[in-house]
Amino acid sequence: MTKVALTLTINGQRHEVLTEPHRTLLDVLRADLGLTGTKENCLEAECGVCTVLLDGRAVNACILLAAQCQGRQVLTIEGLGRDGQLHPLQQAFIDHGAVQCGYCIPAMILSAKAYLDEHPAPTEAHVREALAGNLCRCTGYQKIADAVLAAARELAHRR
């Protein structure tokens, strides 16, 4: 099978990837690049645990061909913190007890980031709407919503 040569910018770093055309961004991130902070589950864009940001927008990496990402910017959870410091969203998730098993959390944080980047002062209803594509089975979402709202306040404060 013909492989496709791709250039992806992941967490600010250029990666040259040679892969088969049917492989998804999720396959490449996890299996080829070892970036397992992006999680794998339903593979049908229902659970949202594979959420990453593509050119700043939340996408399900499980149904996106890696080939579709040629030349584009990908942000995964591994690229969110800066200089060893947690992002305010990450810190808020810890502070508000929003983490249980944690498997959905990297995706949840990235969905929240994409939303807050565009809507810096959301209501709880907005936050819940923004995270509707991310299933969590542990928390019941309440502390997650609280964490995102707190992070929004913290980010506004820093501006």
Binding site: A45, G48, T51, L54, R57, A58, V59, N60, L64, S111, A114, Y115, A130, A132, G133, N134
Partner: peptide, 9 residues
């Protein structure tokens, strides 16, 4: 339609 992730794409 789906979640944000699907509507973005």
């Amino acid at each position: 339609v789906g979640g944000h992730q699907v509507r973005n794409v």
